[in-house]
Design a protein around this nucleic acid. Structure first.
Length: 207
DNA sequence: TGCCAGGCCCTCTTTAGGGCCTT
């Protein structure tokens, strides 16, 4: 099985750009071990700025909820402990990585571990999906959902189920004996046209 | 006041542009 642990995470934020002043408002994450969810983490955090109506409607997170939430530093200190020592995964990881690194920097911490992106892998494994948005992929693969969308823990859990599904499909379709984290990272970078050849080659090497 | 991203990926590409994804 996946003989490694992975923290699958998702941020809700005030907008798209930490460099443009946007902040995290919620972190949700699950810990995968042997391709199963074994732990969960969730926290709102007070960004000390108002969220606009688009964000409140998109996430359901209101300014009132954030006013009574823990500070970003308190929440991020706890999350830093939760993620310590594990590989990281997110859907469209470049987005979550920017916010994670920006919020860690504010508490004088630095991410040590690698990231992998479930969206880049899904584009390669499921080229025929109607789109590669998380919500669409969850329906396409008939994955379990809570019915909640655009909240950090719910989205992290859906991303985790997508990740589990991709690992299982690699094993079944290509007879992989194991699917190391590094393989998923490599796969995310392989030119799309070269993916089948790449996967057959790796499977043969494992043979 | 007004500003407002960035990485990937395709194509009628590379001296570029636009759609997809994330909030």
């Amino acid at each position: 099985m996946g003989n490694y642990s992975v923290v699958v995470l998702d941020f809700e934020t005030t907008g798209l750009s930490p460099d443009g002043g946007d902040r995290a408002i919620e972190i949700g994450a699950v810990l995968l071990q042997d391709n199963r969810i074994v732990d969960r983490f969730q926290s709102l955090m007070n960004p000390e700025m108002r969220v606009n109506s688009f964000i409140s409607e998109y996430t359901g997170i209101t300014n009132a909820m954030l006013a009574s939430a823990p500070s970003t530093s308190e929440a991020m200190e706890k999350f830093a402990k939760f993620m310590a020592g594990h590989h990281l995964v997110a859907h469209n990881a470049s987005f979550d990585r920017r916010f994670l690194d920006a919020e860690l920097l504010r508490i004088n911490k630095r991410r040590q571990q690698d990231f992998a992106c479930s969206m880049l892998v899904a584009r390669r494994l499921y080229p025929d999906a109607p789109s590669h948005r998380l919500e669409t992929l969850v329906r396409y693969k008939n994955l379990v959902t809570s019915g909640v969308y655009h909240r950090a823990l719910a989205d992290a859990e859906m991303t985790a189920h997508l990740w589990i599904s991709m690992v299982i499909d690699l094993k079944e379709d290509f007879q992989f004996r194991q699917v190391p984290f590094a393989l998923m990272q490599q796969l995310a970078k392989v030119p799309k046209a070269a993916v089948p050849t790449f996967l057959r080659k790796v499977a043969a090497e494992q043979g």
